[in-house]
Design a protein around this nucleic acid. Sequence first.
DNA 1: GTGGTAGAATGGTAGGACCATGTTATACGT
DNA 2: ACGTATAACATGGTCCTACCATTCTACCAC
Lengths: 269, 269
Amino acid sequence: MICSHPPLKFLDVESGTLYKIGMTTKTIGATGLVFDPIRVERVSEKVAGQLRKLISDGSLKVGDRLPSERDLSEQMGVSRTSVREALQQLEMHGILETVHGGGSIIRNITEQEIRKPIERFIEQDKKRVLELAELRAFMEAWAAREAARNRTDQELETMRGYLEEMERDFEKGAIRYDVDFKYHTEIAAATHNTIYLHLIDNIYSLINYSVKVHREEVFVSRESQETILNHHRKIFRGILERNPENAETAMKEHLAFVVREFKRKFFDR
Amino acid sequence: MICSHPPLKFLDVESGTLYKIGMTTKTIGATGLVFDPIRVERVSEKVAGQLRKLISDGSLKVGDRLPSERDLSEQMGVSRTSVREALQQLEMHGILETVHGGGSIIRNITEQEIRKPIERFIEQDKKRVLELAELRAFMEAWAAREAARNRTDQELETMRGYLEEMERDFEKGAIRYDVDFKYHTEIAAATHNTIYLHLIDNIYSLINYSVKVHREEVFVSRESQETILNHHRKIFRGILERNPENAETAMKEHLAFVVREFKRKFFDR
DNA sequence: GTGGTAGAATGGTAGGACCATGTTATACGT
DNA sequence: ACGTATAACATGGTCCTACCATTCTACCAC
């Protein structure tokens, strides 16, 4: 998922506080007075802070590629050195990953703590896959509700685009999984809850990880494809009309169907 | 404690492994073969590794000051840039501290808390705290529903125990936060969804971190304590009677109250 | 399609210059 | 002789330029 970033506005580094109060306090002499130590924030830290914020408020999503170091340094009015130091700080914290010659991409913040341990769980027991599906179902139901409540017109149009794409793909033969995925992701984004966005992203990839097969191979029949399309139409309508109840219900219906089909194929029942 | 470092021997950076094996694996094509991605070690990483080694084997003790960046770069035969990057990596990991104009000193690794990525992420914006609360609310509502459906008698008894403990604490003065926490955790366990259990545990710890104050300090009034207790009684009844709807409703009511109170205290509204 | 190749884009390293801050030595006044 | 103010130096912080190493991309030959 590569993207250019003309719309992103990188403020001048001078914006924001120049000095920052540390966390520890010291008592000086016998006066009993307590002072907070003053700590100058380095340029690289300001840059890192700004990038953090852009990630935090969702302007930069997981998988996005940052502008090049040269671009960043120019846009922010600082040296490439400072930008590099900032990127390195973020890389140390696992927030992004830089590849020699390839650029820097945003990583999932929840990955470190949540992903690794869970992967091991999943490998131990097939039952975990169903647990994941269960999780996904109720989380997305909430997302549909919140999206209906908070979505912007812009986001709605994006969803409409994906939906129409699915319609066309259906006419031509089969719905493509990646469009379906993007559709769900856009709903997640429309909740305007960044942490949820990262969380659900992780759950998706966990599902993909544990179920090595793509959905395309599960939902091949004409009927199931049509059912899914109908579900999506219904979800879209709920979000369009800003009707949380309907959106949630439709999503629940949809995922219940998906899980049912899934069970039928993989656990032969 | 300032000291010069003629005796320290800084090996040439070329010593040590040039290539390093990463952590993730990829499956290529349909062969099923698994390859480990190759990752080149950057110069700064080699420098950092050498310093790490010197610290771990005691050549550099806590409080010692490192040679200047210029000295290090000369002794190691690398640019000052690389040395600086290495020092920064170590500083990120809390291993040393650099002072503008003062040099870099070794810190005690055990004394400082190393902040996890998400924690820094959350600090970026107060809004994130509310997002966490939002997440928690709908996830726990689901948990209450599932617990009512799947709980064993054993788990119910454990909950009863915690509830009674809260009742006693309330009579004696105040509900203890850890009991409340254990109560919620037991509900999570009763869902019998292991992955959910881990997920919510993570979210709890994040909330505890971001909200530096314990709940005890937020819900001090007799009325709010009683309200909370009533909520818990209601939730318990729903789970006891295996009534998912009631349990979910009660939990929603409870967390809505908690979030409302929380907002009132911390965002003064 | 598959694979190779050249050019562009991008991150990595090097080195020099200068500024900001801390450290040390020196000169000064009492 | 002592403390203090000042100057000189040492050291980290930032910027700049240049060049190398790797990846990406488009194009071509097969």
